[in-house]
């Protein structure tokens, strides 16, 4: 219980410090948001009018306070460049980024975990070697490059899937889904390769340990022993990697979103920074930080549940 409280306090503190860092960094950015919107022929009075509208004349500490306070109340502010509520803008993008991350995770687990088990099962044999060579290649291919190759094959040549773009879910769920197939694959390949390697290593590690030997002495075959005891015990390192990967996917899809012109959260922030849409960047980055921290929190708590030893050691 104490552990939980401490961990939660840490979570809150991380968020507050993150908010401060983001705010300060953004305030330091060179470039005038008003001038960006109005361009090179803007007259001085139009610029002044826009700055006033954007609230840029309020001192920084007050703006920070206002921002944190309104975010706590669930108000994310209004984007001045896009002139729309930030919460709405983020929610729209989450409808792409979240499923994309989840699909990529699902594919990488569906491919990576069984292959890892298979390799461990055949440790040292040609199959193991072949799988691990494939995994090495998978880890090493830059995902945006892989995405390009996928598009050329499946969209341009075979025309099975769209080369990019996204149909909103409410319009046509099936089309939306199709639009996410190639990007999920591009994202999943390196993740699957990593998972396969981690799974294999973890299994090989536990295979040498006493309880597996005991299980085998009790008459289980190697496969049964690995399946019943090995996989469960190997889950811990795999869980860590999964947490890391999900965190990475949530925030790290910008590049793949660009290749497939998907309207994801990463691209929203990317564009907003170049447009000096400070309100939007701030709040959207906070949402990402929140998502990543929450994932880490869940991983840590699961850890503590799975392995009470860790809980004692940490507390």
């Amino acid at each position: 219980m104490l552990y939980l409280l401490r961990r939660l306090a840490g979570f809150a503190l991380t968020l507050l410090i993150a908010a401060l860092v983001i705010f300060v960094l953004l305030d330091l950015l060179p470039g005038d948001p008003a001038r960006f919107i109005l361009g090179i022929n803007a007259s001085a009075d139009a610029l002044a009018a826009l700055r006033l509208q954007m609230g840029l004349d309020i001192p920084a500490p007050a703006r920070f306070g206002n921002w944190v306070w309104s975010m706590l109340q669930g108000d994310f502010g209004v984007s001045h460049t896009q002139r729309a509520p930030v919460a709405k803008l983020i929610a729209e993008r989450m409808a792409v980024t979240l499923p994309l991350s989840v699909f990529a995770m699902a594919i990488s687990m569906a491919v990576g975990l069984p292959l890892g088990i298979l390799a461990a099962r055949h440790r040292g044999k040609p199959l193991d070697t072949a799988l691990m060579v494939m995994a090495q290649g998978g880890v090493a291919v830059p995902n945006f490059w892989f995405g390009m190759l996928l598009t050329l094959l499946f969209a341009v040549t075979l025309r099975w899937l769209p080369p990019g773009g996204f149909t909103p879910w409410y319009e046509d769920g099936w089309l939306a889904l199709r639009g996410l197939v190639l990007p999920s694959l591009a994202l999943a390949l390196p993740q699957a390769a990593i998972l396969a390697r981690v799974m294999r290593t973890a299994l090989v590690d536990v295979a040498g340990q006493d309880f597996i030997r005991t299980a085998r002495a009790k008459g289980m075959t190697y496969g049964e022993a690995i399946w019943r005891h090995g996989v469960r015990n190997a889950l811990l390192p795999v869980l860590t990697i999964l947490g890391l990967q999900f965190a990475y996917l949530i925030a790290g899809t910008i590049i793949v979103e660009n290749v497939f012109y998907l309207p994801g959260l990463g691209r929203l922030i990317f564009t907003a920074i170049s447009e000096r849409d400070l309100v939007l960047v701030r709040s959207a980055t906070m949402v990402l930080v929140l998502a990543v921290s929450a994932t880490m929190l869940v991983v840590d708590l699961t850890y503590a549940l799975v392995d009470p030893r860790l809980r004692e050691r940490r507390a």
């Binding site: 950015l29 965190a247 910008i254 922030i269 920074i273 980055t285 921290s293 880490m296």
Partner: peptide, 19 residues
Amino acid sequence: SDLAFAFPSVIIAILIATL
């Protein structure tokens, strides 16, 4: 360490690049 991790590295890169 959590804090450093929670910041998406691409966004850090964009911010630093801009700064």
